[in-house]
Amino acid sequence: MGFLEEDFRVKVGLAEMLKGGVIMDVTSAEQARIAEDAGAAAVMALERVPADIRVQGGVARMASIEKIREIQETVSIPVMAKSRIGHIAEARMLEAMEVDFIDESEVLTPADDENHVNKHNFKVPFVCGCRNLGEALRRIGEGAAMMRTKGEAGSGDIVEGVRHMRAVMRGIRTLTILDENERMAYAKEIQAPYDLVCWVAEHGKLPVPNFAAGGVATPADAALVMMLGAEAVFVGSGIFKAEDPAPRARAIVQAVTHWQDPAKLVEISRGLKDAMSGLDSGKLTPEEMLSRRGW
């Protein structure tokens, strides 16, 4: 199967290295340095964080070449960057710029409202968002080497991220108890490739690392998604839209490591200032929900 071949192992290998870590959205070299100093496992180069994209509106595109270069030159940790869903040309440009991972992301305005990029054709690995197991396996079928929940980016509200992580984990658990004769019907129901459905049923996990993203604003939020089964955490607006980016970044990094130790979480969280104010994602209209982009 394609996902066991050598190139794919190398792609997943980098995702394995990021486990237990925090991937932080950054929009400048200065923010990238703060992220690396705080212990980020990687940074995501962006023009605007999702909270600003929501407020300012307009078409959100791949970051500028200068922005990505500036961040690549500043840090030694992996640098990721986002491409629009289905934007093969942005993805090829990011690959040519040697970013370490491409996030084909619903946070940017989709370029194709029917198709995601065929990620098998690239040497650079991709991460994609998902809301449930079917969506995760469709993206893995296209060649994604890492999955993350979509959550609701830029909201500072963890409820959608929780919903998506629970849906993915519930789908995995369901598959492990189904009779093998029921797998094709389940594949049909969740609209997922049959071979990947069988792989998950036999292994009880996704064939690629399974990270959380969307709405993480506090160390407690980060610990929560780890408790639900995330293997690492993306933080977007939650750090640089807070009053205290550097201490908050450090605290979230520690929370992802020490999520099983509540006393430590208390110690880590003490003294932090206000988190980003955030939006109640339950009050967003369907059109305002970034997580509904892609399928």
Binding site: M17, G39, S76, I77
Partner: peptide
């Protein structure tokens, strides 16, 4: 293990 050495260092210190 493998991972990001700079991240590990930050987590070792405290």
């Amino acid at each position: 293990p493998g991972g990001e050495s700079s991240a590990m260092l930050r987590l070792m210190e405290p």
